[in-house]
């Protein structure tokens, strides 16, 4: 019960912090940047720290919460927010991947064929996103609306997808078999080594191409989509799916990051406090998550994403003077 209230409190903090950020942003704009400069890194640190607390048990990376909430509440251009979101997702993925690979949970052999395709679409997504906001006077509002719509899709995916801990793969497809897409890891809860096989690789590659484009375009991590594809479609056990997804995110986001760096859309002033905040928050969040009920956290994050989706669409429509 205490844990439930703790998470409710955290959700409340996110909203208050977000609304506070919006109020501060309005105030700063009204006064011509009236807030002292040092307030912004602190606000970002606090904001991303709370996101870091919530993210670990929700099954989504911090970037997927940071981008929509920052777009809805903070005064930064969506370009800088996407740049920061991408670097945050990249840092998280790079920090956790080596350990997951050594344990046998993340498999480079599964990652390689899908990333060959998704890296290209991720780069194209990054180019298209920056081109729209810069080529069209109201491009940033269309991007904001599209982000809201993507969040609705993520919401539906999270609502409807059921994770299978150990999917049964009776037969591999020819390509997966030829590439030797198998692996094993020691599962402490079962006290034994679990072996697995991957299947339906060709269909998986198509899905990853689409996901890569969306991730690159909006600066989102893609764990929300990678995991269901690997787990439900390709038959990877849930732990292998989440771990391999981390490596995929790392490679895709690193490739897309160069587009943002080369356009000047990565500002250390935004990125550094955000990366530090989410890193510290995620470490504490991972410990909190042990006691939290995963289903409750999942619903909390879904509610936040739904709210962010609505706010982004409203913000975009207001910018276009539709409402």
């Amino acid at each position: 019960m205490r844990v439930k209230w703790l998470w409710l409190f955290l959700g409340f903090l996110v909203l208050v912090f977000g609304l506070g950020g919006e109020a501060l942003a309005s105030e700063a704009a009204a006064k011509g940047g009236g807030l002292p400069w040092w307030a912004w890194p602190l606000i970002l640190f606090g904001f991303t720290f709370i996101i870091g607390l919530i993210a670990p048990m929700s099954g989504v990376g911090g970037g997927v919460l940071f981008v929509p909430l920052s777009t809805a509440f903070f005064p930064f251009s969506v370009d800088f927010i996407r740049g920061a979101g991408l670097i945050m997702a990249l840092t998280s993925a790079l920090s956790s991947s080596p350990q997951l690979i050594r344990k046998g949970l993340a498999n480079i052999k599964v990652m390689a064929p899908v990333v060959c395709v998704s890296m290209v679409t991720s780069i194209i997504g990054g180019i298209v996103g920056l081109w729209i906001t810069n080529a069209f006077p109201s491009g940033k509002y269309y991007i904001t609306i599209a982000l809201g719509l993507v969040l609705f899709v993520i919401f539906v995916v999270m609502l409807t997808s059921k994770r299978v801990e150990f999917p049964e793969v009776k037969e591999q497809d020819g390509l997966s078999s030829a590439l030797g897409l198998t692996g094993s890891w020691f599962e402490p809860t079962l006290n034994k080594v679990v072996e697995y096989k991957i299947t339906r690789l060709p269909v998986g590659i198509i899905f990853f191409a689409l996901v890569g484009f969306i991730a690159g375009m909006f600066g989102l991590g893609a764990g929300w989509a990678n995991v269901p594809v690997l787990n439900l479609l390709m038959g990877a056990p849930i732990k292998v799916a989440t771990s391999t997804s981390m490596v995929i995110i790392g490679v895709n986001d690193a490739a897309a990051a160069w587009i943002y760096i080369a356009k000047g859309a990565v500002l250390p002033m935004i990125v550094v406090p955000s990366v530090i905040g989410i890193s510290i928050g995620a470490r504490i969040g991972a410990k909190l998550a042990v006691k939290a009920k995963p289903v409750f956290v999942k619903y909390l994050v879904m509610a936040i994403m739904l709210l962010a989706a609505v706010l982004n669409i409203i913000k975009g429509l207001k910018g276009l003077h539709v409402i």
Partner: peptide, 17 residues
């Protein structure tokens, strides 16, 4: 980048910023 100038302009698209 001067931080005060950055804060005053970070609402602009990146090229204008």
């Amino acid at each position: 980048v001067d931080m005060k100038q950055a804060i005053a302009n970070w609402n602009l698209p990146v090229s204008e910023f």
